[in-house]
Design a protein around this nucleic acid. Structure first.
Lengths: 339, 339
DNA sequence: GTGAAAGCGCTAACAA
DNA sequence: TTGTTAGCGCTTTCAC
């Protein structure tokens, strides 16, 4: 802990025999300083190990040099990957990343408001915070909503509905499944809802309806495992299960065989996200690839741009997805696929 | 983005007909304000939607109200869980959490130094930052090292060596395995190294040696998958594999069957961490349970305490672990274990 | 090219 | 109980 007081501009100024203004010019790379003076100042800076206080600097410049990220939880491969994307662009902008796990907080609204007050921009996962709070906060900081809907000003997302429509279509058209169910639909989360819509659209386009309500409300592997048990208990296992994300699919994949159901023979399974484990599962998971880190990076980029006044018009950025066919849907291993 | 200037103490003071000091007293819950005055000030505060600037406040109080967390990457269940622990404590202290993914950064040392300058305390995963940097930074902020070794002042960890010694012993003593290998030993990471030591200790105590060098250097599921392929290629699959963490074990679990090796019949596998998927894998993973969130929470608690001057003596906090026997080691399902 | 001085928004002695 | 007044550490006009 700090025993010695950190040197300030004034210390350096005195030591170098210049004014604080000059020191400030040196630390902020202002060109109008004579090379000789600059060298002398720099020497003092080095000698004292001086670095500007972020608080003083922030106050004077009215800038926090920080980006806030609000996610439901901090767990799971999806959000980790998202955060990675955010971090990479933040690092490039010399900006700190401050995180907030919304689902861990008793008072999300308050926490977000406080976060807004110590950052220049916010990247918020849709469904974690009331839109009213978001709106209130939006005139203090730039806000970019991940997976947001049209009512949000700036959004970054993928088209989960079409993507999920496509994998579902694969299940019906290629494998001839007729009895399909959706797994994972937590209330208030827009992305699973979107995917569920795509699922139903694919079915109705083919004259089918979902053969039962969505199973399970969570988005984690344990929820998939629970869904598997419920299914067995109900005695009614459908032809195929379309999951809101890969983790749920892993839970199913890990549990169904022990319950006596072979995947994909007895029941086909598809996921969503294409996380690192998808290609490792047994059978390998057919899923929708999302550019997860890209989503985070794009959001961060937009947020930071908006924060530095590049007041761009309201925009909706849709990143591309792609169906990745492996074996959990019933397809045979592609020739050359490593196992 | 901010169109209107945010109100300041002075605005509120003027509007409420009091001095800035009184406003400050109200916002910081100072008791020496008459109830009546307080009410009037509070009314102005509410009317203007005033909230103290964190920058001004921080500068005056010389406190950031922020905690920095340095982890290798932000990915994976382990670090997510750790972060969850940190967040919960930080939230209780009304403190923001600023994260840094060390392995994503080209200039870790610089990044950590900058982070130190905008936080009151740092929780650092051992092996992510040079000890020299840590030492340099330690007289600016409180530093707590996760999984650190004795040369660090304050550390929070589990006894990975003993824990790994114990699971390894189980494999040898209960299942009679003699040819065992360790998987996952990235250079510079102290925890896997510790576990590897425990592994070797268990063996040597029983007159055995590891039947080959540690496999794979990564700590992720893909690394386990790669290790499985290497093993097959070498044609020499041992009796049992002891993994540095659960993720590696999942990679093995997912890949070995496809290669023609049954787990645990042909090869036993044990992991480390006991993450959420461990009880879901097929077969369920025998592993060492770590109180991961607790580790983060404890570290955060210590860091914050140190930051608020409770200059406690150098301490080494060791949290308990426990071997969780499931079926991947070859044991039969415990009666009553849900599958 | 350099310096003096006025803030940025807040807290904390000290006085009253 | 309340107000006055220095700062906290930095940037940034505006003179020189």
């Amino acid at each position: 802990m700090a025993a010695v007081r950190r040197p300030t501009v004034r210390d350096i100024a005195r030591h170098a025999g210049v004014s604080v203004a000059t020191v400030s010019r040196v630390t902020s790379d202002d060109p109008r300083v004579r090379a000789e003076t600059r060298a002398r100042v720099q020497a003092s800076i080095d000698a004292h190990g001086y670095t500007p206080s972020s608080l003083g600097l922030g106050l004077a410049r009215r800038r926090h040099q920080a980006l806030g990220v609000v996610l439901p939880g901090l767990g799971g491969p999806y959000f980790a990957e998202l955060l990675r994307g955010v971090e990479s662009v933040a690092a490039a902008h010399d900006t700190a990343v401050t995180v907030l796990g919304a689902h861990l907080r008793p008072d999300v609204a308050g926490a977000v408001e406080r976060l807004a007050r110590r950052t220049d921009a916010l990247v918020v996962q849709a469904g974690t915070v009331d839109d009213a709070v978001l709106a209130a906060v939006a005139d203090e900081v730039a806000v970019v909503v991940l997976a947001g809907s049209p009512q949000h000003p700036t959004t970054v997302r993928t088209d989960g509905e079409s993507a999920c429509r496509d994998v579902t279509a694969h299940l019906v058209d290629v494998h001839g499944h007729r009895r399909l169910r959706f797994v994972g639909l937590p209330p208030g989360a827009p992305e699973p809802a979107q995917r569920h819509r795509g699922f139903r659209r694919a079915l109705s386009e083919r004259g089918l309806v979902e053969s039962g309500p969505p199973l399970s409300v969570g988005l984690e592997a344990v929820d998939g495992a629970a869904a598997a048990r419920d299914l067995r208990a109900s005695g009614d296992v459908p032809d195929a299960l379309v999951c809101a994300n890969d983790e749920i699919a892993f839970g199913l994949l890990a549990t169904l065989p022990g319950l006596g159901y072979d995947v994909p023979h007895d029941v086909a399974i598809v996921g969503f996200d294409d996380n690192a484990l998808a290609a490792l599962a047994a059978p390998r998971l057919t899923t929708v690839h999302q550019p997860t880190a890209e989503l985070g990076a794009t959001a961060a980029r937009l947020a930071l741009a908006a924060a530095s006044g590049e007041e761009e018009p309201t925009t909706d950025h849709v990143l591309p997805t792609r169906t990745v066919v492996r074996e959990s849907c019933g397809c045979s291993p592609a020739p050359g696929a490593r196992r």
